[in-house]
């Protein structure tokens, strides 16, 4: 399971891999190999980027331009107002607001609850600990939809449908993958700092809050980024629980995207661009912080 941990941290870590020893005899051959590598990667990246460039181009057109042949990569004229139209006329401001506060809530609550639970798993010996931790890991394999059906009926009976409660409450109890990440990180922190805190008269709760968490910036940022992304793109839960228009999140707004002003694919494309920007920005910010965080953690 070590690999799971490596996922975000590995991506975060600066390429600290030992530089592969170069073999002098094969210098020419490896240079050709390198050229081949870079060519292959460039072609693949081009393939990856094309839909996204196409998306941006199409989002800046009007409907006629959208369908026009031959295809224009740089629209003329550029319709920036598509974006303001989507945000204001199509009510996306509202959807973005809903999605944003849900995501921020998820991040804050998930960091607190998951690190709290992970602290228990990493710093205390109690009967059944390892078995319970295996259960934590096993829950990642359970398809969430199985539970959703029964939960839906409970929420319906207590009147939570079309409220945010079904999305808010379960997050209070920690999430398996995040607990796992925190635990692995906490295990890597030396126990001596706990001991020192205890000798200084810190209770375990204060040790968690004042000693462990401040040391855990890298993993907190990783969890924050992943939780935000997860909440930002979540569709199944909101689709089922949020039935009214008032409570729609951004993914729901996209799913139900219909134009009151006639066919409007460029508007849809603009809406897609808008919903893709926060994850990209967050990743860009997060990666920088994570790189630093991991570097700092490794120096100590």
């Amino acid at each position: 399971m070590q690999d799971v941990l490596d996922k975000p941290r590995g991506d975060a870590a600066p390429p600290a891999a030992p530089v592969a020893p170069r073999c002098r005899r094969k210098g020419v051959r490896s240079r050709w190999g390198l050229t081949g590598r870079i060519t292959a990667l460039s072609l693949f990246c081009l393939l990856l980027l094309f839909p996204f460039l196409w998306l941006v181009s199409q989002s800046l057109k009007d409907t006629n331009q959208y369908f026009a042949r031959p295809f224009q990569w740089i629209p003329d004229p550029v319709r920036w107002e598509n974006f303001t139209d989507v945000i204001f006329k199509y009510d996306f401001l509202h959807y973005i607001g809903n999605s944003l506060w849900l995501a921020v809530y998820a991040v804050v609550v998930n960091i607190l609850s998951s690190s709290f639970v992970a602290y228990g798993f990493s710093r205390f010996r109690f009967p059944g600990r390892n078995a319970l931790f295996m259960v934590v890991l096993a829950t990642m394999m359970l398809p969430g939809q199985v539970m959703t059906i029964s939960l839906y009926r409970v929420y319906r009976d207590i009147g939570w449908i079309d409220t945010f409660w079904p999305l808010l409450v379960p997050k209070l109890f920690g999430a398996a993958f995040e607990i796992f990440l925190f635990r692995q990180f906490f295990l890597s922190l030396p126990r001596e700092i706990d001991e020192a805190a205890r000798i200084d008269g810190c209770g375990t709760l204060r040790t968690w809050w004042h000693v462990i968490l401040p040391q855990s910036k890298p993993v907190i940022i990783v969890v924050a980024v992943f939780t935000f992304l997860g909440s930002w793109r979540e569709l199944f839960g909101p689709l089922i629980y949020l039935t009214g228009e008032e409570n729609r999140t951004l993914p729901l707004g996209l799913l139900y995207f219909t134009s009151p002003f006639g066919s409007s694919l460029p508007m849809l494309m603009a809406a897609i661009v808008i919903s893709l920007i926060p994850p990209i920005v967050l990743y860009a910010l997060g990666q920088k912080y994570i790189d630093k965080g991991v570097a700092i953690a490794e120096i100590k």
Binding site: S113, F116, V117, Y119, G120, F121, R123, F124, R125, F126, P127, R129, L132, V136, P170, L172, F173, G174, I179, T204, W208
Partner: peptide, 14 residues
């Protein structure tokens, strides 16, 4: 042991 269970109790409950 008791404290450990206290800390994991949110997850256990959830």
């Amino acid at each position: 042991g008791v404290q450990g269970y206290v800390y994991i109790s949110p997850w256990l409950l959830g």
